[in-house]
Design a protein around this nucleic acid. Structure first.
Lengths: 243, 243
DNA sequence: GTGGTTCAATGGTCCAACCAATTTCTGCAT
DNA sequence: ATGCAGAAATTGGTTGGACCATTGAACCAC
């Protein structure tokens, strides 16, 4: 009963600026990479101070929606729409082992669900596309004799896309980036990801057979191998830390 | 709190301001809810313009790290540390039935995992806290003869917190907000959420018994009831649409 | 105590410059 | 005409100062 009567805010100018800008972007059908009006122009058109415009743009910049280049202009970096939800994820504690494990816990939950949904919903075209990515990945694995992050990631992304829910790709991508931000070099484990290789095909087989629970189980096995690799790497680090 | 906050130089001012502020927060051991120096003080100490300080704080505000209250001050909203990873994620949500179902798919995956992890990791204190929220929720249910969004949500949040992984709360909260943005009124279903009531206690029982798979199963049942309610609501809408 | 009033502190907005990086234009040499 | 160096314009970044709106505390009258 208290939830009605939301607090009013007479001062919300920069918010209003962003709303207006979002509307403008939609009307002009601006896409990523395109340049949007000068701060001075915006200030004049919206009848607000340039300072206010800047604070609004600073928010968008912090959210990664926009990129400013001094002397050049302000450019869109992502698609924006008036009804957007911003979800700033903050992973404190930094680049330690626990941080990596936390991203993996999220990914384990979502990866399994996405694989299951994909097995239910994927049509012929989607399955063919996943198989294509799988073949490329396996090819790279055999020629280079090791896991290839790039092709591996592409394979997984094709599954998320075929899940019919774009949120999976968005959130798992965020976890993936968070993960790779402090894992440029595989912690001293030479064959990192090697153990996960066979499960890529078993996941695909389950998807192709429209077996959601099988796909879920195989996805969980895959993540488990990554967690094991990570733990091995952490153990290595601990040992070599006594240098 | 005098000699901290040394002056700033060179470009990338606002970034430097944030780094200095993060260091200050750590050295002063400031926690959520505490007030940090006024903009004017910061500007003077850091030897930058107040405008620059404001742009920096605007970024933190956009990331949900800080809350500004006009006439009062600027307050920490979350723990911040100098080595923090920010991953702003923007979700383009469609405000239709399918959009609601998509948020539920994410929540189903994460809710189950969080409940399972909680069952493994929750200590005595966390379990007591969850029980407290459960009691409050059940009390509200019986007195008001219906589900109470607020108390229900608090109960779930206490589980996420006890999962030992803050990402669960962050992501599910985003889904929750996305969900409630187009569901102010329960789609014509009078007793929305009613069916989910008993599962709150079964989930708690499994957690208290440190039974992860049981907790996972009960959480899945709970989400299933919400999905059913949603489908009923959608059916209602379709019928009443022929007005 | 209760309920206003005053007043200082604080965030929000505005303005008018100037700085720094970039882009564009200009004009000279070839 | 062409190519290129330098000047000029454009644009985001920063500064300092001013004023407004809100908050909270101290104060006062009842």
């Amino acid at each position: 009963m208290t939830d009605l009567l939301p607090p009013i805010q007479s001062t919300a100018r920069d918010d209003a600026v962003l709303k207006a800008l979002a509307g403008f972007v939609r009307q002009e059908a601006l896409g990523p990479g395109e340049k949007l009006p000068t701060e001075r122009i915006l200030a004049e058109r919206l009848k607000v101070s340039r300072n206010t415009v800047r604070e609004a743009l600073t928010r968008w910049e912090g959210l990664g929606l926009v990129e400013r280049r001094q002397g050049s202009g302000t450019y869109l970096k992502a698609a924006v729409s008036p009804d957007m939800l911003h979800m700033p994820l903050t992973l404190a504690g930094g680049n330690d082992f626990a941080g990596l494990m936390r991203t993996l816990e999220i990914r384990r939950a979502l990866e399994a669900e996405a694989a299951a949904l994909c097995a239910v919903r994927a049509g012929k075209d989607e399955i063919a596309e996943i198989k294509r990515k799988l073949d490329i990945m396996e090819e790279a694995f055999h020629t280079r004799a090791g896991m290839s992050s790039e092709e591996d990631w592409e394979f997984h992304q094709s599954i998320y896309r075929a899940s019919g829910n774009p949120l999976f790709e968005q959130i798992i991508s965020a976890m993936h980036e968070l993960f790779h931000r402090f894992w440029e070099h595989p912690l001293g484990v030479r064959d990192f990801g090697h153990a996960s290789f066979p499960y890529h095909r078993t996941i695909f087989d389950c998807i192709a057979a429209h077996d959601p629970e099988g796909a879920r189980a195989e996805a969980l096995k895959l993540i488990a191998t990554v967690e094991d690799d990570l733990k091995r790497g952490a153990a290595n680090l601990k040992l070599s830390d006594r240098r």
